[in-house]
Amino acid sequence: MFERFHQYAAPMHFHRLSRKLSPWLFGISAVLFVAGLVGGLILAPADYQQGESFRIIYVHVPSAWLSMFCYMVMASAGAAGLIWKVKMGDIMARACAPLGASFTFVALATGSLWGKPMWGTWWVWDARLTSELILLFLYLGYIALQSAIEDRRAAARAGAVLAVVGVVNIPIIHYSVEWWSTLHQGATVTKFDKPSIDVSMLIPLLLMALAFQVFFFASLLVRARCEILEFEQHTAWVRDYLRGRHKA
């Protein structure tokens, strides 16, 4: 009975729950985005050193945070799918990967845009940048493996193993890259030891971080809904649901 609940009913209920929740979440994130952007781009004062360019942190920092958070969600969901055979775990892990890759890419791209006026180059071989780039490669490897395996269940399980391996490796990669970059160039560009940030700049940043977080969950729900329909395409409820939509 319990097994049945996990195996079959959960995705259906989740689908219904997700349809109710995601518009609300999108709405909340839109409000937070407006508040954060107004606070960050208009109300917050310009930085005494970096001028107006610092304002990119309101996109850059939240996406960098989310790029890592998303990997943890992906790996935990995958592990849940692998260990307890929770179907929703497989589905969530699959839905996470493209989102995480996008956040990682946004973090890298905005960092690069900021680096041009600040450091004078698009790219430096700094430890954090390199780790973030490797994270992007980890996401791309996961996506490639997912798309190479035809069967969805098998693909999800293989992806979960890879994500867990990635989680074990991320600290090793992070510290080895730090070792590597300190050997290479010492503290030439990484002297930005977190400057204490003023409250007028911090509040918009936190609002933006929250907005990104809610946006992530909202889009995760939408993506998960598509995955559910594809996973469960041969079940009766999906057929009924799609037929109902078709009529409406």
């Binding site: 490797i134 490669f137 980890l138 791309l140 490897g141 490639a144 493996l145 890879l162 391996v165 990635g166 490796n169 090793i172 990669i173 080895s176 890259v177 070792w179 590597w180």
Partner: peptide, 13 residues
């Protein structure tokens, strides 16, 4: 694509 990112620590050392 899968392995090279995981190989980076060994390559570094």
């Amino acid at each position: 694509l899968i392995t090279l990112p995981l190989y980076i620590p060994v390559l570094i050392f």
